[in-house]
Design a protein around this nucleic acid. Sequence first.
DNA 1: TATAATAATGACTAGTGGGTCACTTGTCAA
DNA 2: TTGACAAGTGACCCACTAGTCATTATTATA
Lengths: 277, 277
Amino acid sequence: MIKKQLIMEKALELFAKQGFEATSIQQITEHCGISKGSFYLSFKSKDELILALIDHFMMQIISDIDYTVKHTNDDKKLLYEFYYTMFHSFYKHSDFAKILIKEQIQSFNKELLVRMHYYNRLNEEIILSMIERLYGEEVKLTKYDLIYSIKGFMSTYLELFLFYNVPLDFTLLSQSLVEKTNLLARHATVPFISQELIEMIKQPIHKEVSKEHMFDIIEQNIAGIEESIEKESLILLKQQLTEPTFVPAIVKGLLENIRNHPHCKWISYLLRRYYKF
Amino acid sequence: MIKKQLIMEKALELFAKQGFEATSIQQITEHCGISKGSFYLSFKSKDELILALIDHFMMQIISDIDYTVKHTNDDKKLLYEFYYTMFHSFYKHSDFAKILIKEQIQSFNKELLVRMHYYNRLNEEIILSMIERLYGEEVKLTKYDLIYSIKGFMSTYLELFLFYNVPLDFTLLSQSLVEKTNLLARHATVPFISQELIEMIKQPIHKEVSKEHMFDIIEQNIAGIEESIEKESLILLKQQLTEPTFVPAIVKGLLENIRNHPHCKWISYLLRRYYKF
DNA sequence: TATAATAATGACTAGTGGGTCACTTGTCAA
DNA sequence: TTGACAAGTGACCCACTAGTCATTATTATA
């Protein structure tokens, strides 16, 4: 488990510098100070490694954003918090963000493509829920265009700060984008992306996460982290999953405990969904 | 020259389908029905091929857009024409557009990176000249943000139609983006990208194109195209470059003749710049 | 037709990469 | 101390790749 993390960490550095294809397993293992065979004890293949990386970081970023959107009560601050969290989360993981943008993960693995679609869809879902809450009927016709505009802002400004090492003021950037978003939401009238277009595009998010799946993830996480409040919380949550004994308040508290542990973000997101918090 | 074009065409198809790294010279030559050695009579290396492709298409796309912006007199239509031409030009070359978006040409060749920066800068220049003409002082503080917003719109909507094969209505899309752009230009007040930030980012566009350079390109083009009005025009323009004899009206007419020939777009763009048309 | 010049070929080289596996080292309970 | 099991190693395999070059085919010229 620890070895796996080491490999992921070191591989990420190399991928961000040289790209995925251009980095050999040899280089990765050398950079880790382990042997080549040892790599294959942790990962079945190079593809499995990149997949694990994508999952690991996308889960964190998505759940960061989701948590912020769900837990910001003040509608006036919501958009701002959304942008700020998003930029901040990508900034925290900028090596990953770099490879995400550089290698548009289209070419190789089919499975990766599916995975990326999935996270993309989750992201769109979050944005949609946010703008429906903020503008309601006002954006009935233009909401999908609004999503795409927001995604457009995200991508260009992300690129700006990922590839030019300039000092950056997320506060100002977020304020600036909040104003733009509000303008588009309140005054844009010409929709391009219709409901029909969306239907044509989307493949359903099939993954309705099963209890067993969450159970597995929790077990993995328990194995992966040190003795701590988080670990204890996880164990209790695992119990709760098989035989519910705690009242919602306790469950929510336990979730809050693990929320900020980097390895628990995803399960925390899934459980929040499951318990409808 | 003809062989070169064949290779570029067939290689583009494969790159769009499988990606650059994943496509071998072997595959390309098989797809062309020529031998491996033959490839190296046209290109010194695989890198030179991708470079030639990038140049070939970026030149066409950039000069399409530039021509539209420079030759649309009606300010009311300008933004619309810009968006329409841009989408249309990428659509015409959608195989190329795909590899441009897929492989974020960052990893490999250093020279490619420089080249892409160069075209990106040209694009930004065109957009800047357009919005300064349209909005003038109004966007003094927010013009760079406006550029980035426009680029954001471009990239998300490009992705939308490049990766989902849906029927698309460029007219409606352009109208929709015109409205959004106008809203942002007229009402956005919070700038994020300041003049200083731009200075920090930009490396100067060094390439002030020399007469000799243009001369070379013309000669190449002459060799590459069939006997035609375009070819004759090129020959006359070549003469004009060494010993100016024609009045501007004639030169402009000759440029108009070659403008729409796919191989002459770039030299046409350069000459328009040179003669300040 | 003969000769020179150019174009095209594909077997070959030298090298790399992902992945395997027989073997070594470390660990820990009995 | 022993022995059984897990963790770790790196030489090795094979498929494949970019690029070369001696040889052959084609074309142009005289």
